[in-house]
């Protein structure tokens, strides 16, 4: 115990003394960390770890069902199965602008010299190789990986984006 007003013996007063401001500052910082920390945890809480959405791997039928030169629109899966002499491709039908489903491919007309599909929402036009011919879409349509399942049916993986040159030879 020391008497107030008298210097304590053997102690360096200046080094041990905490200023009131410093103590308050530490206290407030501790309070903020203690309240903001749990609050930030809620942000992580809002990102789900499990979602109940459609499958990202699914079978789309046997290769024979798609004649050479066809572009078949699969409504449920929102993609086109293209079959040309190079092989099979799965072209996404989800517009790269704002994710509307693009319409079916229509034959060339006076304005567009190749087969094309239009997005109904903001008018983007895509060619069969995914290129943007017109409109606000910022990049070409995606191609998904197509492979042959053990049972001989075509397997599409929408999480596996592949290049335009990727084609499945059957």
């Amino acid at each position: 115990m020391r008497t107030p007003g008298l210097p304590s013996e053997g102690l360096d007063e200046k080094r041990l003394r905490l200023s009131r401001r410093f103590l308050l500052g530490t206290g407030w910082c501790g309070f903020l960390i203690a309240t903001l920390g749990p609050a930030l945890a809620n942000v992580r809480y809002l990102f789900p770890n499990v979602v109940y959405e459609g499958p990202t791997r699914f079978k789309v039928g046997r290769p024979e069902e798609y004649p050479v030169g066809s572009a078949t629109f699969l409504e449920e899966q929102r993609l086109f199965v293209l079959h040309d002499p190079e092989g099979f491709r799965a072209l996404s039908a989800v517009c790269t602008h704002l994710r509307c489903t693009v319409g079916q491919f229509v034959p060339p007309d006076a304005q567009w010299k190749e087969s094309h599909a239009r997005c109904p929402c903001h008018g983007s036009i895509f060619a069969k190789d995914g290129r943007v011919l017109q409109g606000p879409a910022p990049r070409p349509l995606d191609f998904y990986r197509v492979s042959l399942a053990p049972d001989g049916r075509l397997l599409v993986e929408t999480v596996a984006i592949v290049g335009r040159d990727y084609a499945l030879k059957v």
Partner: peptide, 24 residues
């Protein structure tokens, strides 16, 4: 599977939708 054509927002967002139709 099937968006309406045209797919229009309520009137107060259509100015924004027009702008978005140039560049999102």
């Amino acid at each position: 599977t099937h968006p309406p054509n045209p797919a229009k927002a309520p009137w107060y967002f259509l100015g924004l939708q027009e702008l978005v139709s140039y560049s999102a």
